[in-house]
Design a protein around this nucleic acid. Structure first.
Lengths: 160, 160
DNA sequence: TTTAGTGCAAAGGCTTTGCACACCG
DNA sequence: CGGTGTGCAAAGCCTTTGCACTAAA
């Protein structure tokens, strides 16, 4: 609900993905265009997805879409920084469209929708850890979990 | 290196694991005792492990140790809170012995050794996210990555 | 034309499941 | 004894790989 056409945004994402392919010196094929379209759709919804799911969906609109093709494309886009990894509360790792700089996500435990956030671990916390553990900290992963407004208004049950 | 016998600690962990089995109304079998011992060993080293690895190791000392038995035990211990999930930088999810209260881990990218830390996301950060996203935040996962003192002194290369 | 990209099918990991037997309580 | 727990083997997922074919550039 509350999804009204912000197609400019969708176009922007689509263009970003397509250009990521080109930038990496890769050919623009029919399959990759379809993948880009599906990702733009997912990006608009802020949904996370597994590669397998993405393939299953794509196969619905094109029965010949090869599984390996989708897996290969997702790998390339992860490497290109167009996709991010998002870890769900059960430990399973999914993906999300998300170029840009360092950031984290809040994922709704009801509908799996994710939202990017600027919030990050304060430098003092990192400094304190570094001091007590003597580790040199050079990276971190932070995932927040919660319930989005619409899942809350729908009661305790899941959305998607 | 720098491993000198702190067996009291190891015993404590062993007892904690065994009692977790009992507490859950589960029988104490030869297999579960061996699993508990292996976990106590891992706890002492602060090592993360995959269930498959744990099984492979256990099978070395007892060739009849069933894979399913180990997988089932790990599930039970995860549920019992004796084991934690630790997500590595590549997104793969491993385990670690770790009862106790809410906490997080620093994992060494050289040797995969993990250390528990008290540090956590400050309440203000959570409040800010809650405000801007309108999500009700009810959980989070935080993993820090870095290099431990011994891996650093060994140069840029990996330990294990 | 050249060669990256594709689909298919098979192979590989890791994890779970089904079932008869073993053994704890 | 009775029912939980076990080992084995098979089946299931998800993911990767090998190879001949297709189609971008």
């Amino acid at each position: 609900m509350a999804e009204h056409g912000d197609n400019p945004e969708k176009e922007r994402v689509l263009a970003a993905i397509l250009s990521a392919f080109t930038r990496a010196g890769m050919r623009r094929t029919r399959q990759r265009s379809r993948i880009a379209q599906a990702l733009a759709r997912l990006a608009r919804k802020g949904a996370t997805f597994s590669t397998e799911d993405l393939w299953l969906n794509l196969r619905r609109e094109d029965a010949t879409m090869g599984r390996a093709t989708v897996y290969r494309a997702v790998d390339l886009l992860l490497e290109a920084g167009v996709l991010d990894r998002v870890v769900l509360p059960d430990g399973s790792s999914t993906h999300r469209v998300c170029g840009g700089a360092h950031h984290h996500h809040v994922t709704c435990t009801g509908c799996n929708r994710t939202v990017s956030i600027d919030a990050c671990l304060p430098g003092e916390v990192l400094a304190a850890v570094s001091r007590t553990t003597e580790f040199v900290i050079d990276g971190h992963a932070l995932e927040l979990y919660g319930r989005c407004p619409s899942c809350r208004s729908m009661g305790t049950d899941a959305g998607v």
